[in-house]
Design a binder for these strands. Structure first.
Lengths: 215, 215
DNA sequence: GTCTATATCGGGATAGAC
DNA sequence: GTCTATCCCGATATAGAC
């Protein structure tokens, strides 16, 4: 059902543990020894599951973006208004990032991803950007979003994702979506109606037929 | 006029260079050799200006937060409505973070700051949080801000700061403020009037009499 | 205030036994 | 699939000459 690659339980433990440590200490600030110690194995054991430390970060980025990108592909195939698709996409993406055992928003904004070593992951992040920009541009053309620069608006909406990652106090997906849509909508009073339509949208949860992540 | 500590030109070059590198590669991903090489000196030269690498990050955080915290103290002493103070504070703080030669927003969100080594800087960041929460709470009591959880709202507004730090495309302070206030205001049509009042507010630019940063 | 030289440590990664 | 042992490198920081 899921498009996610099946992994050994040991590899999953590594990803989960690494994600937590990276969120707390940064990628370069987290050593493979730290990860191994938190799991309770010796450091070289990591290398039976990942060829290099960088591959752990790559895998985490893919796990974080895979589902939102696939969902965007499915939503684009529906005939729903762009603001309805945006609402649904935000809800599912935020819930995915919140609930995923190994993905935290902070992984996606770690500065090390800007290095040449992570070109493939940079492309995924650019596609993620594009998804938001496209939905906002469509919403503007359809008259549901007030006049503003779509690229700036997309950056602002994306930056709200970080509110979910901050330590010690998690803003809920519902709060983020409400804040974003009230800021975007030409007529904010339509929010309840948009939300109902978004929740009623039928998309395949298994992401069958969705665009492949490698594209 | 300025509350900022006077530093040697060499120390300023170190801070400026370090800020750029840390924004691009992360704090742990930036070595003192990287910083020295970018300046054109040998690595040990750094240690004549900063006793340890951590002191560079500490100084950058202080330089980033000093002015916004002092300004918040001054604004609290005025009788302006909270939404007007919030508007003015956002504008000056965003402009400060954008224009400062050595401070970038990403410095303030670097995960390494969560370590015990940076307790003092964590306290400054908590005061920064408080400033936003307090203004939003006051705005709610004064009826200018719509009903929402002040802590969540403050986190959301703060997360918008990051939109200014993203590589390759800078959202302007004006765009961030408009987005934030439209999302917060009970009556968004009052935004132009609030902006005029905020721009007309007189606060001392030298931050005289402002609360000391060490408090 | 910057240099060279260097001490010391921790990090990523590999080899080979079990 | 995990272990021990180890290699090699890069990183922080210090000592002492100029």
């Amino acid at each position: 059902m899921s498009a996610e690659i099946t992994r050994s339980p040991a590899a999953e433990r590594i990803l989960r543990t690494a994600a937590e440590l990276i969120a707390a200490r940064g990628y370069s600030g987290t050593s493979t020894r730290d990860i191994a110690a938190a799991i309770g194995v010796q450091q070289p054991a990591i290398y039976k599951h990942f060829a290099a430390k960088d591959d752990i970060l790559s895998a985490l980025v893919r796990l974080g973006l895979e589902r939102p990108l696939a969902l965007a592909g499915e939503l684009a195939a529906t005939s729903a208004p762009a603001v309805v698709r945006l609402h649904r996409w935000l809800r599912e993406s935020l819930e995915h990032l919140r609930d995923s055992p190994y993905v935290l928003v902070s992984i996606l904004t770690t500065p090390e991803l800007q290095s040449e070593r992570f070109t493939a992951e940079q492309h995924l992040l650019e596609r993620f950007d594009r998804v938001v920009i496209d939905m906002i541009e469509s919403g503007r053309r359809e008259g549901d979003i007030r006049p503003l620069n779509p690229t700036s608006a997309a950056r602002l909406v994306q930056s709200l994702f970080d509110a979910q990652a901050l330590p010690e106090y998690a803003v809920t997906p519902a709060e983020i979506i409400e804040f974003a849509l009230i800021a975007l909508l030409a007529d904010p009073s339509r929010l309840p109606e948009i939300q109902r339509a978004a929740d009623a949208l039928i998309v395949s949860t298994g992401m069958n037929g969705a665009e492949d992540i490698s594209g």
